[in-house]
Simulated scan of single mutants.
Amino acid sequence: MVRTAPEVALLVKRLQHAHHRALSASLADLGISLVQWDTLRHLARHPEASLHELAQLTFQTDQSFGSLAARMVDRGLLQRMPGPGRVVRHRLTELGERLRQEGQGRADRVFAETFAPLDQGELDQLGDLLETLVAARLAVRC
C-alpha cells in the first residue's frame, strides 16, 4: 500500500493519542497524571534539572510547567533547591521516586502491548526510521 506523508503523520498522531489515553488510565489509581509521571521520569534521568529544562523535556511552556511543578512540590513529589543565580533546581522526593517506578512498570506494559505485533527486526526498523525523521526535523530547525 502506498501511503502519503500526511497519512503516515496521522497514524503517528493516532498512536501517540492511544498511548496517552492508555497511560493516563494506567496511572489514574496512583493519583498522578501522565504529565506528572513524565516529569518524574525526566527528573530521574536529569537530576537537579531546572524548571526551564524540565519544561522543554515535557513539551510545556516555562509558565505552565512552573504551575505544575508548584503543585507537585505541594503534593510532596518534588523538592526545589536553589541553583546558580535565579535558577531553581528540582529533585525527586522518596514519594516521587516510588510513583515514578510504579508508573514506569505500567508504561512498559502499555508499550509492550502496543508493539507486540512487531518482531524485533520490525521494531528496530521502526525505531531507525523515526530516529531519522526526528534528526532531519531537528536539523531543519537549527
Rank of each mutant, 00 (worst) to 15 (best):
A49R: 02
A49V: 04
A49H: 01
S50N: 04
S50E: 07
S50D: 07
L51H: 10
H52Y: 10
H52A: 15
H52P: 00
E53C: 01
L54E: 03
Q56T: 09
Q56R: 14
L57G: 03
L57I: 03
T58K: 01
T58I: 03
T58C: 13
F59E: 13
F59Q: 10
Q60P: 00
T61K: 06
T61R: 09
T61S: 15
T61I: 03
D62C: 00
D62N: 11
S64R: 13
F65R: 00
F65H: 09
G66T: 07
G66L: 04
G66V: 03
G66P: 02
S67W: 12
S67R: 14
S67Y: 15
L68S: 00
A69Y: 01
A69P: 06
A69K: 02
A69T: 05
A70R: 14
A70Y: 10
R71W: 02
R71T: 11
R71A: 14
M72A: 06
M72H: 03
M72Y: 03
M72E: 09
M72C: 08
V73S: 05
V73H: 11
V73K: 10
D74P: 00
D74A: 14
R75N: 08
R75I: 04
R75C: 01
G76Y: 08
G76W: 09
G76M: 04
L77W: 02
L78T: 04
L78Q: 06
L78W: 06
L78S: 07
L78Y: 02
Q79K: 13
R80P: 02
R80S: 11
R80A: 12
R80E: 15
M81E: 13
M81I: 08
M81Y: 13
M81A: 12
P82D: 11
P82Y: 07
P82L: 02
P82N: 06
G83T: 03
G83F: 00
G83M: 02
P84V: 10
P84S: 12
G85Y: 08
G85V: 05
G85I: 07
R86A: 14
R86D: 15
V87S: 11
V87D: 14
V87P: 05
V88I: 13
V88R: 13
R89M: 08
R89C: 09
R89P: 02
R89L: 15
H90T: 09
H90V: 03
H90Q: 12
R91E: 12
R91L: 13
R91C: 09
L92D: 01
L92N: 00
L92G: 00
L92T: 01
T93V: 04
T93M: 07
T93E: 09
T93R: 05
E94D: 13
L95V: 11
L95C: 02
L95N: 11
G96V: 06
G96H: 08
G96A: 09
G96W: 05
E97W: 10
E97C: 08
E97H: 13
R98V: 08
R98C: 07
R98I: 04
L99R: 03
L99Q: 07
L99V: 08
R100F: 15
R100I: 00
R100E: 13
Q101W: 12
Q101S: 15
